[in-house]
């Protein structure tokens, strides 16, 4: 199964590398959102909870784009039949899609977070980075799992682009709560404060619950 996952993942990454569809769009949307925040809030620099909120909204918007494009190659170019006809397990498809989304998110964050540090953040980004990497990585795993599930749910409908954000935003709310509370501590004006242990724990629990749910339900979504 690991081999199948890697093959499928390589296909997704190769497609993205050749087309350059999702990741550049996600990064551009993130950059544009940061500019919007500057003008919408009317502030040159922000810190604490406000900064953390701006960062999470930016990342969430970018991930919505990634989620709605996740199965497009399969749906529009008829790759679905090929993938389903191939002797691969459904779990491998789920794992490959979630990992692809995770990689896209990490690349986007490598661009968007430093940009956020330069454009909006009023406190130095450097000291917050170790904590931020941990929180973002945990949150990215959660977003990748839920994203793979939501995009598989929405792909067969006529209104895919509409459904993805309205489904994914409420579902990801616990991730936003935990992530933004944790990073709010990291962006405190007096230097990063200790992150309460319950936020990473909440992210991990959320990831485990939705991971198991996706694992159990993926068979029914791609069983055509």
């Amino acid at each position: 199964m690991i081999g199948q996952t890697i093959t499928l993942l390589r296909k997704d990454l190769l497609l993205e590398f050749r087309d350059r569809e999702s990741v550049p769009a996600m990064a551009l949307l993130a950059a544009a959102t940061l500019v919007v925040f500057h003008f919408a809030l009317g502030q040159r620099s922000i810190s604490g909870e406000l900064a953390s909120g701006a960062l999470w909204v930016t990342l969430l918007f970018a991930s919505m784009l990634g989620i709605s494009r996740l199965f497009v190659a399969e749906q529009e170019d008829g790759g679905f039949d090929a993938v389903l006809l191939a002797p691969v397990e459904r779990t491998a498809i789920l794992l490959a899609k979630a990992t692809a989304l995770l990689i896209f998110l990490v690349i986007v964050e490598l661009i968007a977070v430093p940009m956020f540090g330069v454009l909006l953040l009023g406190v130095p980004l450097g000291p917050a980075i170790p904590g931020l990497i941990g929180v973002l990585l945990l949150a990215d795993i959660c977003i990748a799992i839920v994203g793979a599930l939501v995009s598989a749910l929405a792909i067969q409908t006529r209104i895919r682009e509409l459904l993805v954000p309205i489904l994914a935003l409420p579902l990801l709310l616990p991730v936003v709560i935990a992530g933004s509370r944790a990073s709010g501590q990291l962006f405190q004006p007096g230097g990063p404060a200790a992150v309460a242990g319950r936020w990473p724990l909440m992210l991990a629990l959320y990831g485990v619950v939705f991971g198991l749910l996706s694992f159990a339900l993926y068979d029914y979504l791609l069983d055509d």
């Binding site: 749910l153 067969q156 006529r158 579902l171 749910l213 339900l217 979504l221």
Partner: peptide, 22 residues
């Protein structure tokens, strides 16, 4: 919106059920 955007009745039931469980 999710339910009624799927035309095939069998698939509609299945997708709606997955949503309901999640």
């Amino acid at each position: 919106p999710l339910r009624f955007a799927i035309e095939d009745p069998e698939r509609q039931a299945r997708y709606a059920a997955v949503f309901a469980v999640v």
